[in-house]
Design a protein around this nucleic acid. Structure first.
Lengths: 132, 132
DNA sequence: ATTGACCCTCCAGTAACTGGAAGCCTCATA
DNA sequence: TATGAGGCTTCCAGTTACTGGAGGGTCAAT
């Protein structure tokens, strides 16, 4: 199978597939003409990677998950540990963003949004009283 | 004032201050010895930038906000527009992360996390039934 | 033989810094 | 006066995970 087929079947773009090969996530063979030659298994792995990336796992996490996926002797606690750590980081990000949202919502509400220069948003960002 | 002092007073690290000069956010003079020479105004601007960055505004947003901050003829609607657009993007990110969290929380709960290989997390990521 | 759709590699750019190397400058102390 | 610590300078590279583009082979069909 050529890269285009695999891309369609896995949902991962050709550029990204080549990149994943570069960083050693997948190792397709080569045909005589130099084209990458993929198997069904590669399609599965790429779909796996696409899904993991969509859940926000880093590439390094994906590398780990993929090796566990292929390891018949894995222990589910290993997988769970990766997922839990990732979940923690997602929750951290959510909290940070929510705090930003709270502040911004407040500022946006307070700003008249008219033709006058006075602006609570700038006032909040500014460490000193705006001159004039 | 040297860069170290400004860094302490504004809360922005020296490296970042130099970077901000590189990209034209601030323009300190130079002393005879080649050191950057900052004023109180630079401290204010940097604190402004630090706060804006903490609220998640991009550097380009910061550039816009800074120019509005310095423009006595600004209209608050210009500031508000930038903030509202940023707010929208933050809300998008939050939603995306919350959806990831929902899925991950569910998967983590379902995973035994023991010494056996069976794992609902991998099963979810995998497009096919795990063999054996 | 040519066309169009593939495929290849390599290079650069993204965002916003951060770390480090190599080398002046300055000030206080021995 | 020498020296050492700490601060300042520039420049280069690395981070994350791709993405776009240039320049150029390959293949199948007309």
């Amino acid at each position: 199978m050529n890269i285009g087929d695999v891309a369609r079947q896995s949902g991962v773009p050709p550029k990204t597939i080549r990149y994943y090969e570069d960083i050693g996530l997948i190792r397709p063979n080569r045909s005589e003409n130099g084209y990458r030659a993929f198997t069904e298994n590669h399609v599965h792995k790429l779909a796996f990677l696409g899904r993991a990336r969509a859940l926000g796992f880093t590439i390094e996490d994906c590398r780990t998950l993929l090796s566990l996926y292929e390891d018949e002797n894995r222990e589910s606690m290993q997988v769970k540990a990766v997922a839990e750590e990732h979940l923690r980081q997602i929750e951290e990000k959510i909290e940070k963003l929510q705090s930003m949202r709270t502040t911004l919502t407040d500022l946006v509400e307070k700003c008249a949004g008219d033709h006058r220069p006075d602006c609570p948003i700038l006032a909040d960002l500014s460490p000193v009283q705006l001159s004039e």
